[in-house]
Structure formats: C-alpha cells, structure tokens
Amino acid sequence: MDPRVLIAKRVAQEFKDGQLVNLGFGMPTQASNYLPQGVKVMFHAENGVFGVGPRPAASAASADVTNAGSEPVTLLPGAAIMDLATSLGAMRSGILDITVLGALEVDQLGNIANWAVRRHGKWWPGIGGAMDLCYGTEQVVACLMHTDKDGASKVLKKCTLPLTGKSCVKTIITDKAVFKVGENVLILKEHAPGVTLEEIKTCTEADFIVADTFCEMNV
C-alpha cells in the first residue's frame, strides 16, 4: 500500500460520528476519502467553508469552490461559506473537535513544526492558519512520514524547526506507527503492516514506551 494512503486511511479512523473536523494541506485532506462506514462528520476548510463534500469529477470542478489547498471540492446541503477572517475566528474559538495537520517534525512533548524550512537564508513558506488550529482545537493529530529522504527520524525528542504549536499534539500517525503523546514520552499504540517493533525503535529518535495493547494498524 502507498504509505500516504496508509496514513490517510489510519487518520480517518480517528474521526467520530458528529464531529466537526478540519483537515490540513496534503495527506490530511485525503483522509476524507476513507471515512469508516456509518461515521458522519462535517469537514471544515480553513479558507472559509463548513460542509465540504467529496472531490468533484474533473468536468464539474470549479476554481471558485476549493479547500485551503486549492483542491476542488463540493458543498454538502447546508454548507456555509464565509470570509477568511470569520473562518480563522471559528478556528480559534474551540468549536472544532479535531484537526489533522501534516508535519515536518513532531516530538515527545507534543510539539509540532509544520510551516518552515530554511532556504537561501530565509524561513519558507509561511505559517498560514496552522497556529490558529493548534491553539483552538482540543484534539490535534499530526500525520507525517516517519523519516526524511535520508532516513533520519522526524519523530524527535525535541523539534529543531520553528514550532507551529507547543504541547498540542495528542496523536501522531506515520507510515510506520501510531503514537499517543504522554507525559514527556510517546506511547506506541500500533505498528504498520509488515513493520516490526525493532524497526520502529531504530528509526525513532523520541523516547517511547510500548502500550500493553500494542497491535497492527487495521487499514
């Protein structure tokens, strides 16, 4: 299975019926394609939409109806469209039940860095609304590849990049594992199909303990 599809499928299992859900750019938006049967949620897009529906056919796509990543979407009955300032206010207010954010780094303290890398002496590209989501949402899920292109861990003892949110992440989902964030330590809950505990230990910088219920992801 494509690692990004695996992550998106596992992320979708975090959603509970009736929740108001924000999905960040990239992998998080794909989670909407894999909702568990019988689970109905309302999706929010940062650019100002409550009630985001499935991706339309190419022939029905409109450049005026997109999510925050400029991907075409549909609107469900009862959807609401608003200006960006109102949408950001809603994100800060605490009404969202869960937000899923892509990440460059996460750490065992529940910190997340997802907005900047250093290029040509400058931090790029910019923070967007992720900081508002980290502040205003009780349940923050971070999803990312477990290692970078050189094989270095992206699940760290302490983030090295500028933070997006501090001590806000509750769950970390990678292509190799699922962690819950405990008290200054991660709790390993699940492993991806075909991934061993030893492999996770080898590619994880962060300190973690193994849950008594440690099992394989059901994806």
Rank of each mutant, 00 (worst) to 15 (best):
K189T: 15
D150F: 01
V169C: 10
V181N: 01
A79G: 10
K154Y: 04
T74L: 06
V65Q: 07
L96S: 08
A211D: 15
T66K: 15
V140L: 00
K189F: 01
E199M: 07
L163T: 08
V73Y: 01
V219I: 12
L23Q: 11
P56R: 00
K201Y: 07
D212Y: 00
R55W: 11
V52T: 14
G18F: 04
T66N: 14
G151M: 02
L88D: 09
D97H: 11
D150E: 08
Q139E: 13
C203M: 00
M1H: 12
P162D: 09
G121D: 04
P162Y: 02
G69Y: 12
E199H: 03
K170A: 07
G121L: 03
H146N: 08
K40F: 01
S153L: 04
T160E: 12
D107Q: 11
N111T: 06
P3C: 13
K158F: 01
K157S: 11
V41M: 03
V21F: 00
G78M: 03
A12Y: 03
E138L: 04
F214M: 10
C168F: 02
Y34P: 13
T66F: 13
G165P: 07
N184W: 04
T213S: 15
V185S: 05
I112P: 04
E205C: 06
K40R: 11
L188G: 03
C203N: 05
L75T: 03
A211C: 12
P56V: 00
E105M: 11
L156M: 13
L76V: 14
G24P: 07
P56S: 04
L88E: 13
D64M: 15
A60E: 14
T29A: 15
F179I: 06
C134R: 06
